[in-house]
Structure formats: structure tokens, C-alpha cells
Design a protein around this nucleic acid. Structure first.
Length: 850
RNA sequence: GCCGGCGUGGCGGAAUUGGCAGACGCGCUGGACUCAAAAUCCAGUGAUCGCAAGAUCGUGUGGGUUCGAGCCCCUCCGCCGGCACCA
């Protein structure tokens, strides 16, 4: 006797069976143009998941949420006659494998191989229809060879502002190409994380802590590789418009890019040849500028500070340098600053104004200097109050609010050149006026910083770069891949020296040249993996031209038709990948300027306790356990039935059970148990069309499920299929065409049970041979949905008082007459005046009385 | 502080986009089957009052538009996410 509970239907028998069949027969392999079996007459559909980092913990229930949605779409599109590209791979460079290597001494490649095997087995158990022949792994030299190749392309390019695109560095005619390369080395203050022993990109720092691990991050100047993503700021911003992405994600990217339009204005320094350039979005408030503030790090400070102010300035600068970003950004604290002793001339008023330094002005944004306009800027006002600086009102609000402290647009006052103009007009005029006098010009600023691209770690792509006499030089394409050496000790050095610096032999490239020892960040591999999927085994090109054209082609600007993943990558992966795509596009290597046309974010799945799943809370759900108990189909269907894909929602084992019951009902609709306890095809299934209600139900279900898949409402599609099964459960006879159609509708959601039942039907009936995945998606016929009668609602003053049936053809006049003669209506309107009657055909009649 | 999203039964969630609020599922209650239980099947299940027919109330709060509002407009409250001295 098995202690295990009897399965409500034998999923444990047929799910592995179908998974094996799919694998052996390469059911879901998508041939490329030119390959055997490729059908050029079919349109393509590229449906992509965000490939996972194969961690040691295995799959959690969040992964398969998006994966199930894309799998449903992939299976649906195949049945609709598309060539579907639906691949999966591994984003396997990264910290955890390396941390484990540090502890165990085991090479990260080994851990990675084990984890990949585990993930793959888990994904296969869920029955996803991936084309496993296209599997890729970012840590495979055959893959990262091309990541390095793309880096070389970026390194050997520059952004030509005239053509507004990247071009080969050979078209650059200036004297120092290294100053304009899209990949360059810069000695700048960077985010250094001592705990991780590496620098991090701005995007990887959250609230002054590392995104991975939550360790403190400090500012520290270091020599680092940087990618010139800022050259693409405008295009990254503009080309968002064409994408079918959630507005929220577009907004996050827009804010991250942070475009500001305004002017740069030069302030002459009193008694000096120097001038200070400030950036402002409000040149119209220039007359209100009563002081200047420089960032403490501003290089001009050294040149202008007066003798007697030096001690105070030096002390302030040192104090600022010691502060972490977090402390410096702490808004609750009061404004601080020090007078430099120097003065500047306001070009509009020609008055002398003091120059201060303060840490609320950031060296990294704009020009690192601002004009203080206390009357119309909150921060400047706070600063002016603290240090008793003068204020001048120059904007009159058009509403009732006080002018002092008003930060909106209004009418210029106390500003001779622009008095009476609206703020917008004033901005234009004063900018033109400054330009005429050579004292300023219109300017645009972005918050986006260049992408810090090197890491002091081991487990990443080495740079295909060598150093000779203090100068960097790229390796040739024929020298790729650059494979990292094996190390005894993977630990970060703690000094900022990368671990690879310990591999003395590897470093030595020649008598004179040494290898670069930094590695690329984890994002590098994922910046172009969607391209590699088009042609994963090509060893002559990062992706074959024909394959890229076909799978990434189409009318829209983006190549991937559907991309599903979490929202956590909104300003990381999704921005970086767009950047690389644009560089490759400019250089003529790919056909689209955008990688992903349609993006859908799946919501986070919470634990049963409505809390975020975490080890410490003990509320993690393991997909394997769920599949053991309820099967893969129930798991898939529950993931979709929980609620809208994009919404955050809690897990519920009871809910899984409910969906499992539904699938058991499906099973028993087709199968009955005989005396011996074996399942056999139900004798109720007949080759008949079924009655009118059954046909209506069938066609209504086809219509609803089809529409719901198209609109990503998978939860309501499943509801409709439940309604269908409930309707047919008690039936005397079950019409074959109805349940054939139903099985096809069910198959993207629950492919195993649908395949199994389809096969059982085929053993008896010969009307639809072959496997279910090769069937055509059914079309609904409106004729089965039309009704002779409509039930309409009778309202009096908007409240429902009765219902009645009217012929579907009833005119408004007929409906009105019928409604007014209704007994309950009569009762209620007796003695009252009917003011108005509203008739909505086929829906309702509303009678308005006193 | 600013920007965005969301507030519907005991719970997850539906609602053709202004027209019967609560589909479907969970849970609960009752019944059938069973010696019994599980499983399964059938029925009921927003709240209040009522024996019932039925009535009244009901989509975070308060107001507005409309014959009619979960849906549109304004106010406030709460939760979630993002940005955070960006000049």
C-alpha cells in the first residue's frame, strides 16, 4: 500500500511521457531560414523570457509565472500558423557562483554547470515548449567570445554628433581617438563597494548600498572602463515612444535619463580672468540670482578662494569628501556651505554676487555650479536663509499664491529685459540675449551617466584589451575568446586590484604588453542574448545575417515580438540592451534600432502570508513540491489562474487544489473508471454536433479564450474553460466536435493532459489525426452565439425593479411599450409622471419618474 | 517631498470600458453516495431586516457630473513601486 494519496487523475503517468516525446522528437524546434523544414510562407513570432541566473537554490515559483505566460502564447501562435522562436538560456556570470568558489575553492564553471542542469530539469518538468537546441550560456567561451567581439566594436567606434550615430573610429579625424571612443578609460569618482571588492554602476546602487547583498558603497576615484551611453541619451529617450511597453517602465527610463532643457550661463569673476559656467532650467529668473554655489569638488575653487577663506574652504571640502553618498543626500539635515571670498558678476543685473561652495551642488550634474535664486527655488531659499543672503523676486504668479518662494511659471518682474513676459517667453528671450553677448547659450542636460563597465571580480568576461606603455590597445578578432585563467584563490584583493592580477602568467601578453585584468559586469551577456538565440551555433558571426533578419524583422521598430519579465530590470538590463542594440544597429550589424517591441512585466508572487517570499520567513514555495503533488498542468494553470499576470498576488495551495480539481473534472469528462480501476474513454462521447446550448457554449468558449490569450487575461480564459466543463459535466451525450475544440483551447495552458486526451480520442475516432500541438486553432462562429431573445433589465430611476425577455429584434419603441406595460412597473409608476424613458437596445429600459 | 500604480464579499479575483456589482475559484453551510470517512456529485453562500414574498444598504472617504458611476471629474485617507538636493 502506498501511503501517497491516490492522484485524482494520472498526471504522474502521462506528464513525463509527453515531456519525453516532445524532447525526443524535437517537437518545438524552430528551423532557421535555409534549414530543413523551414516554411518561409509562415510569419515569425519571437517570444522571449528574461533568461534566469541559475542560482544554487533552484527555480522558485516566480520564474515560471512569466515563463508559463510566454509558453501559452508560443503554443497558441504555433497553432495559429506562426514560426515561433521560443528559446531559453542561462545568464550565468555573476557573484553567487564566485562567492561559492571563494568558500569552496571549486571553480565557478563547475557550480554553474550543476546549477544549469538543475534549472533545466526543473523547467522541463513544467513542460515548456522551448527550442532546447538553441540553449545558450553566457559563460560558454563560444558565447562570450562574441560578447567580447561586440565590446571590440564598441571600443572601435565613436558617436558622430553630425550623423547622430555610432561610426567606426576610423572616420574620426580628431587627434585623440581615445577621447571619443564609445568604450573609454576614465579616472573618475566611482561607486566602490568594499565588501564586494568591486565598483558598481549607478544602476546597481540602491540607497547608497549595493543592489546585490546590500553592502555600503562609497565614492572613490578609480581608473575604470566606461561605456559612453550618454551619447545615446536622446535616442534612448525618443525611441521609447514607439515601443509597446508598460507606461510605468517607459516613465522609469525617461526619469532615469532625466532630460532637462535650459541654458548655460557664464558669470565673470570679479577681479579675475576666470568665469563660472552654471546650468539652469530657469534662465528667466536670472535677475533674481543673488549668489553662486559651486560643488566643493569644483576645480575653479582652487583658483578663486581668497587667502582668508582658505582654511574654512579646505576644512569643508575634507568634511564633504568623507561623507558617503547616503549622508550627503540626507535631506533632513540642514544646508551647509562656505563662502569662498570671491565674487561674480550677474550678467543681467551687473551686480557683484558672492560665490559659495556647498555640498547640495553636485559635481556630476550640469556644470557643477549653480546660480542661487532664493526667491524661486526651495533649496536656494533654504541656503539663503541659513547664510543670510539677499533675495529678489522676479516671477509673479498668475494665481493667488505669494511670489516669494514661488517655483512655478508666471510673469517676469523686476527684470528689465523680459518684464511682462511669461516664463516660457522670458526663457527664450534671455537665452537669446545672453547668446548675443557671448555670455551663455541654450543647453540640455541629462541625469544619465556613462556606464561604468569594469568590475574587480573573477567570474565575468575578460576584456579583449592589452596595455602597453600605459596605453590600451584592443586585441584582434582572431584572438577571441579571451579565456580567464583558473585561479587557486578567487577572493577579491580588497585593494581594488582585480583577482585576475594574481594570474601573473596569464597577464603577460608579450614582453611589452599586459592584459587588462578587470572583467565585464554581469549585464554584458544579457545585452545581446536575444540576438544570439536567432543563430546560437554560428561560429563565424555573432548572429547570421539571414537569421537575424528573419527573427528580428517585421514592421515595428523592435525585433522581439513579446518579452516578459520582472520590473526590476527597468533601468538596468532593459536600458543597457537598448544601448547595445543601437550601437550594433548604427554599425550595420542588426536590422532594428530597438530590441524588444512589446514588454510585459509579471507581478511578484508573495507567500501565503502575503509577505515577500524569503528563506527567513519560511514562506517559499518550491515548484517541485507542487508538481509532485498536483502535476505540471495544475501548476501551470494555477500560476495563470491566480490573477492578472502583471499584478502582485499571494500564493495559495488551496488555489492549486482548486485548479487541480478542474483538471480532474476535465479528465473525467473524457474518461471513466472501469471495474478493474482502469481509465477508459467515456462512452458518452459521440460523433454528434450537440444541442444548441452546447454549440453556443463551445463557440462562446472559443471566442473568450482566444480573446483572453490575445489580451493576456489568462485567468479569465481559465474561468471560461471551467464554465465549459461545468456545463458539459452532467450531459447525457458529449459531442466530439465540442470537446475536440475544447482540448485545443486547453492545450497551451495544460499541454500534457490535452495531449493525452487527444491521443485517447484518436484511438477511437479518426476525424482529427495527429498530435494536438499540430492542430489548427479553432475559430468561433458568431451564428451560434446569436440569441432570439434578450433578457433586459427594467429600471425605475436607475434601480432594477424587474427583468423581462424581449425578442432580439425589438425596436426601442417596442421595448419602451413592453416595459411600461410590465406589472411591477405599472405598480410603481401609478399616479406618477413619467419624465423620461431611456432605452438601451438588448440591455435595459430605465423609466424616470418624479 | 516629487512621480507612477492600486483600493470590490471571509480570501484570490470578474465586470463587454458609463448599463443586472461580485463571473470563476477558494473557504464555509446543507444534502446525495458510503457501515463510516475521503473523493465525487447537487444546492446555497455580500450585509441588514423578514417565516416568506420582498425591502433597504453596498466597490477606501467625502462631494460632483449623469436617466444611470466600481468605471468619468474634484477632495481626502491607506497600501505598493520608483526617484530623491539633478539646479
Amino acid at each position: 500500500m502506498s501511503s501517497e494519496r491516490r492522484k485524482p487523475y494520472p498526471f504522474d503517468k502521462f506528464e513525463p511521457k509527453w515531456q519525453a516525446i516532445w524532447e525526443e522528437r524535437h517537437f518545438f524546434h524552430a528551423p532557421n531560414p535555409g534549414d530543413q523544414g523551414f516554411d518561409a510562407a509562415r510569419r515569425k513570432f519571437y517570444v522571449l523570457d528574461m533568461f534566469p541566473y541559475p542560482s544554487g537554490a533552484g527555480l522558485h515559483v516566480g520564474h515560471p509565472e512569466g515563463y508559463t505566460a510566454t509558453d501559452i502564447v508560443a503554443r497558441y501562435k504555433r497553432m495559429r500558423g506562426f514560426n515561433v522562436l521560443h528559446p531559453m538560456g542561462w545568464d550565468a556570470f555573476g557573484l553567487p557562483a564566485e562567492q561559492y568558489a571563494i568558500k569552496s575553492g571549486q571553480h565557478p564553471a563547475i557550480t554553474t554547470r550543476e546549477n544549469v542542469a538543475k534549472f533545466k530539469a526543473q523547467l522541463k518538468r513544467i513542460g515548456f515548449s522551448y527550442d532546447w537546441q538553441r540553449e545558450i550560456n553566457t559563460t560558454d567561451p563560444r558565447y562570450y567570445r562574441w560578447t567580447q567581439w561586440i565590446f571590440l566594436k564598441i571600443y572601435n567606434s565613436w558617436f558622430n554628433p553630425v550623423t547622430n550615430k555610432a561610426e567606426s573610429i576610423s572616420t574620426y579625424t580628431g587627434e585623440n581617438p581615445d577621447a571619443v571612443r564609445l568604450a573609454y578609460v576614465a579616472d573618475v569618482p566611482v561607486n566602490w563597494c568594499p565588501e564586494l571588492g568591486t565598483v558598481l554602476a549607478n544602476e546597481e546602487v540602491v540607497d547608497g548600498k549595493s543592489e546585490v547583498g546590500g553592502f555600503p558603497v562609497v565614492r572613490r576615484p578609480m581608473r575604470q572602463w566606461t561605456l559612453r551611453i550618454t551619447a545615446y541619451a536622446e535616442r534612448l529617450l525618443n525611441e521609447l515612444d514607439e515601443l509597446d511597453w508598460p507606461e510605468g517602465v517607459k516613465l522609469l527610463q525617461r526619469n532615469w535619463i532625466g532630460k532637462s532643457e535650459g541654458a548655460e550661463i557664464d558669470f565673470k569673476i570679479d577681479n579675475s580672468e576666470e568665469k563660472v559656467r552654471v546650468f539652469t532650467t530657469r534662465p528667466d529668473t536670472l535677475y533674481g540670482g543673488t549668489f553662486l554655489v559651486l560643488a566643493p569638488e569644483h576645480p575653479l575653487v582652487d583658483l578663486i578662494v581668497t587667502e582668508e577663506q582658505w582654511p574654512a574652504v579646505r576644512e569643508y571640502r575634507e568634511r564633504t569628501a568623507r561623507k558617503s553618498d547616503l549622508e550627503r543626500a540626507d535631506l533632513s539635515k540642514e544646508k551647509t556651505g562656505v563662502f569662498t571670498g570671491a565674487h561674480a558678476i550677474n550678467p543681467a543685473t551687473t551686480q557683484k554676487i558672492p560665490i559659495w561652495i556647498a555640498d547640495y551642488v553636485l559635481i556630476g550634474y550640469g556644470t557643477g555650479a549653480i546660480g542661487g535664486v532664493p526667491a524661486h527655488d526651495e533649496r536656494d531659499l533654504e541656503f539663503a536663509r541659513k547664510f543670510d543672503l539677499p533675495t529678489v523676486m522676479v516671477v509673479q504668479p498668475t494665481g493667488n499664491e505669494p511670489a516669494f518662494g514661488f517655483t512655478g511659471d508666471g510673469i517676469a518682474i523686476n527684470s528689465p529685459i523680459i518684464n511682462g513676459l511669461t516664463s516660457a517667453q522670458a526663457r527664450k528671450k534671455i537665452t537669446a540675449w545672453l547668446e548675443d553677448r557671448g555670455q551663455g547659450k541654450g543647453a540640455i542636460n541629462y541625469k544619465l551617466r556613462d556606464w561604468l563597465f569594469s568590475r574587480q571580480r573573477y567570474w565575468g568576461e575578460p576584456f579583449p584589451v592589452i596595455w602597453e606603455h600605459g596605453k590600451h590597445r584592443s586585441l584582434g578578432e582572431d584572438e577571441l575568446p579571451v579565456v580567464p585563467p583558473s585561479l587557486e584563490d578567487y577572493k577579491p584583493t580588497g585593494t581594488g586590484q582585480p583577482p585576475l592580477s594574481k594570474a601573473k602568467e596569464w597577464i603577460r601578453y608579450s614582453d611589452k604588453a599586459e592584459r587588462e585584468t578587470n572583467v565585464m559586469p554581469q549585464w554584458a551577456g544579457s545585452c545581446w542574448y536575444y540576438l544570439r538565440f536567432c543563430d546560437p551555433h554560428n561560429d563565424r558571426r555573432f548572429v547570421g545575417e539571414e537569421a537575424e533578419h528573419y527573427w528580428m524583422g517585421g514592421q515595428k521598430p523592435g525585433g522581439v515580438d513579446l518579452y516578459v519579465g520582472g520590473t526590476e530590470h527597468a533601468v538596468l538590463h532593459l536600458l543597457y540592451a537598448r544601448f547595445w542594440q543601437k550601437v550594433l544597429f548604427d554599425l550595420g550589424y542588426v536590422s532594428k534600432s530597438e530590441p524588444f517591441q512589446r514588454l510585459v512585466n509579471q507581478g511578484i508572487i508573495l507567500g501565503e502570508d502575503n509577505q515577500k517570499m524569503s528563506k527567513s520567513r519560511g514562506n517559499i514555495v518550491n515548484p517541485d513540491d507542487v508538481i509532485d503533488q498536483y502535476g505540471a498542468d495544475a501548476f501551470r494553470c494555477y500560476e495563470m489562474f491566480m490573477g492578472p499576470l502583471e499584478q502582485m498576488k499571494p500564493w495559495s495551495m488551496r488555489g492549486v487544489e482548486g485548479v487541480s480539481r478542474f483538471l480532474a473534472r476535465v479528465w473525467r469528462l473524457f474518461m471513466t473508471e472501469n471495474q478493474a480501476g482502469d481509465w477508459e474513454l467515456s462512452a458518452k462521447i459521440r460523433e454528434i454536433d450537440g444541442d444548441k446550448a452546447q454549440q453556443k457554449m463551445t463557440h462562446a468558449t472559443i471566442k473568450k479564450v482566444t480573446g483572453d490569450i490575445e489580451s493576456f487575461s489568462f485567468n479569465t480564459a481559465i474561468s471560461q474553460m471551467m464554465i465549459f466543463v461545468n456545463a458539459f459535466t452532467g450531459a447525457e451525450a458529449i459531442p466530439l466536435p465540442s470537446i475536440r475544440a475544447f482540448l485545443i483551447l486547453l492545450s497551451p495552458f495544460a499541454p500534457h493532459i490535452a495531449s493525452e486526451l487527444w491521443e485517447k480520442l484518436n484511438a477511437k475516432f479518426t476525424d482529427a489525426p495527429g498530435d494536438i500541438t499540430g492542430q489548427q486553432w479553432p475559430e468561433h462562429d458568431e451564428r451560434f452565439l446569436v440569441e432570439d431573445e434578450a433578457e433586459i433589465v427594467l429600471q425605475i430611476n436607475g434601480k432594477v425593479r424587474d427583468r423581462m425577455k424581449v425578442p432580439i429584434s425589438a425596436t426601442e419603441e417596442e421595448m419602451k411599450t413592453a416595459a411600461l406595460s410590465n406589472a411591477k412597473v405599472q405598480e410603481r409608476i401609478a399616479g406618477k409622471t413619467v419624465r423620461k424613458v431611456i432605452v438601451v437596445p438588448k440591455k435595459l429600459v430605465n423609466i424616470v419618474i418624479d
